[in-house]
Design a protein around this nucleic acid. Structure first.
Length: 287
DNA sequence: CACTTGACCTGTCCGC
DNA sequence: TGCGGACAGGTCAAGT
């Protein structure tokens, strides 16, 4: 679930809370999710926190921590002196999705001089990796396409990339991280709704004006999601444990059977290449 | 090379 | 109530 807006929200939160603080100790409870030697990052201060696509890059004095949350990963910081009540985070209307820390899905605990950073991941797809130089980050980012707000992500670039695709649908295209980095299932659906393009439309059937509209709507959706602190349907939480609020303003994602916000037609859900895809059959006509 | 499928995990939900 | 199976969806390796 963490897509670009979610990871960026976590990055901003961690930056606010962790910069300048020192890692005192690391408790790795599941070694499978932690690549590298935890001892090497001990006593290093946090210098900067960056992001590339859905990967968090925490720069320490002599090392980098790379973190991918995949689907159910969480990074939550709890300051020293937090009360028992502060420890119960989540804020989900269903108490089953609120929790205190640590719990059975807490796999790594970073103890800093002013509090603890918890890495939780129900499905254990996420990972944390320690590297010693910027060069060692390269293998993890070299296949990624540009960020949505880089000058490299131009209409010309986007059109050119599309021209090399044939068989795939526009939904699959948006999920392809080598074209533009950071889009996942939620914002692919939301972008296509805003663009009035059916998710099953083949890439080589897109009209030039549709390509232009999709290109323009990618930043629109990302910026809207960032404003809402991301989408918390279940697991995603911000770095302070709070939920994101995008779901309340989503047009199609998780709205199967509910009326389209534009025309009232019930939203439909279909499978495209194994992923669920939500769309309005009236606003997004198939062809 | 373009594209598809399966694997990685664990919890929830649905139908019988 | 229990139980099997589908589903959640980011990414990569392996297969076509």
């Amino acid at each position: 679930m963490p897509e670009l807006p979610e990871v960026e929200t976590i990055r901003a939160g961690l930056k606010r809370m962790l910069i300048g603080h020192r890692i005192c100790s690391i408790n790795v409870r599941d070694k499978k999710l932690f690549i590298g030697d935890p001892e090497t990052i001990k006593n290093q201060a946090v210098i900067e926190i960056a992001r590339r696509a859905k990967i968090l890059i925490i720069r320490l004095e002599r090392s980098y921590l790379l973190i991918h949350l995949k689907m159910t990963g969480q990074l939550i910081f709890v300051p020293n002196g937090a009360t028992e009540q502060d420890m119960v985070v989540g804020g989900h209307p269903d108490p089953a999705y609120s929790f205190s820390l640590p719990h059975k899905h807490t796999h790594v605990i970073f103890e800093l001089d002013h509090g603890k950073l918890y890495f939780n991941d129900l499905r254990k797809f996420g990972w944390i990796k320690v590297v010693e130089s910027a060069e060692q980050i390269e293998p993890h980012v070299h296949t990624l396409g540009p960020e949505y707000n880089w000058p490299e992500f131009s209409l010309e670039y986007f059109t050119k990339k599309l021209a090399r695709k044939k068989a795939i649908t526009v939904k699959q295209l948006l999920l392809d991280q080598t074209i533009v980095a950071g889009i996942g299932n939620i914002y692919a659906d939301e972008t296509l709704f805003l663009s009035k393009v059916h998710p099953q439309t083949k890439v080589n059937e897109l009209k030039p004006n549709e390509i232009q509209i999709i290109f323009k709507n990618i930043p629109t959706i990302f910026n809207k999601a960032l404003k809402h602190g991301g989408t918390s349907s279940q697991h995603y939480r911000q770095a302070d444990g709070k939920m994101g609020t995008y779901l309340a303003v989503a047009n199609v994602y998780k709205r199967e059977g509910m009326p389209c916000t534009v025309c009232g037609t019930p939203i439909e859900r279909i499978k495209i290449a194994g992923r669920s895809s939500h769309f309005c059959p009236s606003c997004q006509k198939k062809r």
